[in-house]
């Protein structure tokens, strides 16, 4: 999943009700130095500064890999990093497995917009209007149509209450029960990887909405029978079709 700007200093690392593990971050290098064969970076994205340890994987085959990277990642350079969040000495940092220089700066715009999208996606769901949040979502639409004169959300009245513009990948077919529709929404998250979502994660995300594990499992079986989703690497990982 993509977690953006880490603007909420939540120490339990749950953002919008979703556990945060893998993240991608776009920011400006503040400092960069080699330490014990890895690279220590500090990245600033305007919302804060975070430390990153970058494990360069080609270090065995190319002894120049680390010095080359250090030379490339000068302070002031914009980079996109991929990694996972790590608690270290009472603070959060990132163990990065990729850090690459941004050449097209539209990526900075894109990343900020994706962060907003992801926040909306997690906070409001994917547009089936399950649960009792319809009124709140409606308020979300109204607050949007004001600034959105640029035309990226042309017809809010046709939305099903998602509140964040087009591109929501799925809306449960009418008549699907609320739990199945909520599960389908979780497994259809556009940022889910190839291996899909673990059933524990689905339960974790839907627990607060009042769906218990047996309900979720029954919904998954139903969705599988209806060809809406399938299991991937094992019977606990699910993806939408």
């Amino acid at each position: 999943m993509q977690a953006a700007a880490n603007s909420t200093p939540d120490q339990d690392l749950v953002i919008d009700g979703a556990d945060l593990s893998n993240v991608t971050l776009v920011g400006k290098v503040v400092s960069c130095a080699e330490r014990a064969g890895n690279i220590d970076l500090q990245i600033s994205d305007g919302t804060g500064v975070i430390s990153i340890t970058y494990f360069v994987d080609s270090v065995d085959s190319d002894p120049q890999a680390v010095p080359q990277k250090v030379a490339e990642l000068r302070p002031g350079t914009y980079v996109r990093t991929y990694g996972h969040m790590r608690a270290f000495q009472g603070s959060w940092s990132i163990s990065a497995f990729a850090v690459r220089v941004v050449h097209d700066f539209n990526e900075v715009t894109y990343h900020c917009l994706q962060a907003i999208f992801q926040h909306m996606h997690l906070a409001k769901g994917a547009g089936t209007g399950t649960g009792g949040a319809t009124q709140q979502q409606q308020a979300g639409i109204n607050s949007y149509s004001g600034p959105a004169a640029g035309g990226w959300q042309q017809k809010p009245q046709q939305q099903q209450g998602g509140g964040y513009g087009g591109g929501a990948p799925v809306a449960g077919p009418p008549g699907m029960d609320p739990c199945a529709s909520a599960v389908l929404q979780v497994v259809s998250d556009p940022n889910t990887g190839d291996s899909g979502v673990h059933v524990n994660d689905i339960c974790g995300r839907l627990g607060p909405r009042g769906f218990a594990r047996p309900q979720v499992e029954a919904a998954l079986t139903f969705l599988q029978n209806e060809a809406h989703c399938y299991t991937t690497c094992d019977e606990n990982h699910w993806r939408a079709t």
Binding site: A4, A5, S7, T8, G46, T47, N106, T109, C112, L113, A115, I116, H119, S143, Y144, P147, G150, W152
Partner: peptide, 18 residues
């Protein structure tokens, strides 16, 4: 596009950024 981002980041989603 950047101008649209500024409207969001300084308007309805300001709390995400500052």
């Amino acid at each position: 596009t950047y101008n649209e981002l500024l409207r969001l980041a300084n308007g309805p989603h300001q709390q995400m950024f500052y």
